[in-house]
């Protein structure tokens, strides 16, 4: 590999000039929910840095993480001070889906999480961009990034599912393991005006299509109800999330206000 550009990329927030200037019209709880999804998944993907199976894939995952971080910055800024929200909230105050806080696991787990989430995020942002709500500006800009994330996840799902016996088994296992976190994505979020039921149908159709292309069966376990997960939007999180937060926040909490 010759001199690819792997220096730390810029993490400045994209210039969302189209976002509404009057932030009082933004439903803060919704901005928090969407912003936390992006922030937490960004951090999880960032954990692959230095550990990804190949350098090229490490850069790809880092790129996705940085796209999400840019979205998170815009969304959290709509809800308050982005740094305070990211670094000073306790676990119970986060409103992200439990899906995005799940540990990376093996590469197949990360890809399954990406497939489930980026399909959802693409469908959601596509609908938000078409509307005229407070998130239309952000969504119009981010939907192109998210379309790429979805493509990345689908391409890898197909290759792992259709690869070796080991990759196929790992992909199957990962899809099964994360399935119970997928029902939560379609709990309506206050202030996000979309057809949630229609979006869920589109999501099931799309994910099912990808899995069937490599003859992986769509998991059959519960997605909602007593035995499934899903109260992240209410502030209840799974055990690994606390450890992730500790790592994400410890620098800021040890050196408040530090900058470079």
């Amino acid at each position: 590999m010759t001199t690819p550009d792997t220096t730390a990329p810029e993490t400045t927030a994209p210039d969302m000039t189209t976002a509404p200037a009057d932030t009082t019209t933004v439903p803060a709880a919704a901005a928090l929910a969407l912003g936390d999804d992006a922030l937490v998944l960004s951090h999880r993907l960032g954990e692959w840095a230095g550990h990804a199976p190949v350098l090229e894939e490490e850069v790809a995952l880092a790129n996705i993480a940085l796209d999400l971080l840019g979205q998170a910055r815009v969304l959290l800024s709509m809800a308050g001070d982005e740094d305070d929200l990211a670094y000073l909230r306790e676990e119970r105050a986060f409103r992200n889906l439990q899906l995005v806080e799940q540990p990376n696991g093996d590469f197949a787990h990360t890809i399954a999480r990406q497939l489930y989430f980026s399909t959802y995020q693409h469908l959601l942002y596509d609908r938000l961009a078409a509307g005229d709500g407070p998130f239309a500006g952000l969504a119009a800009k981010a939907v192109k990034e998210v379309a790429y994330h979805r493509d990345h996840a689908e391409q890898w799902t197909l290759r792992l599912g259709d690869g070796t016996e080991i990759s196929r088994e790992r992909m199957r296992r990962a899809c099964e393991a994360l399935w119970r976190f997928t029902g939560e994505m379609f709990q309506p979020v206050d202030g996000v005006d979309v057809d949630w039921a229609g979006m869920e149908a589109a999501w099931l159709e799309s994910v099912g299509q990808v899995l069937r292309r490599v003859t992986l069966s769509v998991p059959e376990g519960p997605r909602t109800g007593a035995w499934s997960a899903g109260a992240g939007r209410q502030g209840l999180h799974t055990e690994p999330f606390g450890r992730m937060l500790a790592e994400m926040q410890h620098l800021h909490r040890s050196h408040p206000g530090a900058s470079w």
Binding site: P9, E57, V59
Partner: peptide, 10 residues
């Protein structure tokens, strides 16, 4: 896709 990530990010 790798090329897109490595060489056209900016």
């Amino acid at each position: 896709r790798n090329a897109r990530d490595l060489y056209t990010r900016r």
